[in-house]
Amino acid sequence: MERRGKKFQAVAKLVEVAKVYTLAEALELATKTNPSKFDASVEVHVRLGVDPRQADQNIRATVTLPNGTGKTVRVAVFAPEAEHDAAKKAGADIVGDETFLKQLDKGEIAFDTLVSTPAYMPRLGKYARLLGPKGLMPNPKSGTVAADVAKAVTEAKAGKVEYRVDKQATIHLSIGKVSFGANKLEENARAFFGSLQSQKPSSLKGIYVKSTAIATTMGPGIKVENQVN
């Protein structure tokens, strides 16, 4: 704590370290413990009792946050020319085929989400090392491999986000900004927890959720009652 800045130390005093808060209490507290000058993201961190090495326990899914993420999502579409107009009308920021591939050849990435039609996916194979580590490779599970690219773009722009368990069996997800206020953040959080509950592996014998915490980007962690059984 001594190594932290004065602003962090000041807001950290508002959090009772040993206390486990209700979701509503934690989110209200999160909006008051942002030590940054910018409108920080509010993040949920959930430690699971799964083994990510097991295929059926490698949790990966999407959820549409009712109030969005608070971030401007830049969506690129890689699809046949016949799909371009519909994608643009849906709000896609980048739409293309051959020109788009030339940008990837140069390592240019100016998007946050990439949508592709199933038929075009094989052509993205050579860029797996570029897109994969950044989480940008289109995937059917995340809804970014879609025949209806316009629908996929609309969902991405509206707040559809992907979450996945990491090697430490933990999920990290931004559920909005401090400026949203506790109520909107809670609506987003409950949408996420509902989705996470639906992903519980049938093969899991032990505890599904071990612990839950909420924090702003640079703020202190706040322990939360587990929202998923």
Rank of each mutant, 00 (worst) to 15 (best):
N188M: 00
G125E: 13
K184A: 12
R74K: 15
A147H: 10
A26Y: 12
E108M: 11
G143I: 10
R60D: 01
V145N: 07
Y163R: 05
G68K: 11
G143W: 13
Q57D: 05
A92L: 04
M218N: 11
A26G: 15
G181W: 10
E186D: 08
K89S: 14
V44P: 00
V178Q: 01
L196G: 03
T72R: 12
E81S: 05
V153L: 03
S116W: 08
A30F: 05
Q227M: 09
Q54H: 02
V161C: 08
G125H: 07
S202P: 06
T31G: 04
K37S: 13
L48Y: 02
L130T: 12
E2K: 14
A86E: 07
D39H: 09
T99L: 12
A55L: 13
L65S: 00
K160F: 10
G159R: 11
N139H: 13
A110K: 13
F111V: 03
A10W: 04
R4I: 00
K102A: 15
T62F: 04
A18I: 03
G159K: 13
G194W: 11
V46K: 08
A24E: 15
F180E: 11
V145I: 03
I207N: 07
A182V: 00
A10M: 12
Y120N: 13
A12C: 06
V224N: 05
R60F: 13
K106G: 02
